[in-house]
């Protein structure tokens, strides 16, 4: 058995496999299918200062190699999370990381401050890349000054590991990554979904109530892989790679491109046990290639 431990800032992962926000609920939805303590971490559903109802139905459109969603951060708000959800999940033996979103900088700060006090939440993932809300969200992640401002302010307010989730809907993702690093982020995760669209030709109507939504699944993997590679050559902080991972080989490709850890997202819908299969698959790969530690493959792409 190879050493699968990985550190992201002060965050200690038993292995590099984590589940992506919005695809894994609060973890408990998957407890019938897997031993949650076997995975490195769970990024729970996007959380905002106030309850949000999200966008009207239909919020999902299937594509040949993925899906579009326009959920719009439906959640009951951070206070409800702290009072009702946290007590039910805090003793799961893995890292529970809260994805934080907002419409204004103050909302991000206020939500992050409330999460500071939770002993079993070792990190937050600042979502500056949600394409499905009218105000805030992706607007913070597609402009360097806006990204700098929100990360700087949240960094002051939040003491534990701060991960910033980047949007692929930009001309140059490395510019945003550098700004986020300069303002004190401990790590970046990328990519969030790609802004996309689906149309029903028969009815001549958009499929999503919001017309556009975010594309995820294997369709986006090559783009995500390219962006992880670019960011790995632009910043020193660790990268968490995600975007269309369907199996252990995909996960290993992200690590070779420079990701220290990965998140599995859309694939959870098709195989609720996929996360633990990735842990086993990565371990098997390391043994087969004679690596003693998973950290040996981070950024180990051979471009000679």
């Amino acid at each position: 058995m190879a050493n699968l431990n990985i550190n992201i800032g002060n965050l200690q992962l038993k292995n590099p496999v984590m589940t992506a926000s919005g695809t894994f609920g609060y973890g408990i939805e998957y407890a019938d299918f897997i031993d949650l303590s076997r995975i490195g971490g769970i990024f729970v559903k996007g959380t905002t200062i106030h309850e949000r109802q999200g966008n009207p139905y239909p919020r999902m459109a299937e594509t040949p190699s993925g899906m579009l969603n326009a959920v719009g951060l439906q959640n009951k708000g951070v206070d409800y999370f702290i009072e009702h959800i946290y007590p039910a999940i805090k003793d799961i033996d893995t890292n529970i990381i809260v994805n934080v979103s907002g419409s204004t900088v103050d909302e991000y700060i206020e939500t992050a401050e409330k999460l500071n006090s939770l002993e079993k939440i070792p990190a937050i993932e600042l979502n500056i890349s949600c394409p499905n809300i009218k105000e805030g969200g992706m607007a913070f992640g597609t402009s360097c000054p806006a990204a700098a401002q929100v990360v700087k302010q949240v960094r002051r307010a939040y003491k534990n590991t701060l991960i910033v989730k980047l949007s692929p809907n930009v001309t140059d993702i490395t510019e945003i990554a550098r700004v986020v690093e300069n303002e004190g982020a401990d790590a970046v995760s990328l990519i969030n979904t790609l802004l996309a669209m689906a149309i029903n030709a028969e009815s001549r109507k958009p499929i999503l109530s919001t017309i556009t939504g975010g594309l995820s699944g294997p369709a986006v993997k090559p783009i995500a892989l390219r962006m992880v590679w670019q960011v790995a050559h632009s910043v020193r902080i660790p990268i968490i790679g995600l975007g269309g991972i369907m199996n252990a080989t995909d996960a290993i490709e992200f690590m070779l491109a420079g990701a220290s850890a990965i998140q599995i997202g859309t694939a959870n819908f098709i195989d609720p046990t996929i996360s633990v299969k990735l842990v086993d698959g990565i371990n098997e790969y390391l043994s087969r290639h004679g690596f003693k530690s998973v950290s040996d493959i981070v950024g180990a792409l051979d471009i000679s």
């Binding site: 695809t23 609920g25 939805e29 998957y30 999200g54 139905y57 959920v71 959870n268 819908f269």
Partner: peptide, 22 residues
């Protein structure tokens, strides 16, 4: 029969409007 992705309450794609919200 709303269209669904996960089927287990994780993705929040299949919502309907109810007296308790989505």
């Amino acid at each position: 029969e709303n269209t669904m992705a996960c089927g287990i309450g994780a993705c929040l794609c299949c919502v309907t409007d109810s007296t308790e919200g989505h």
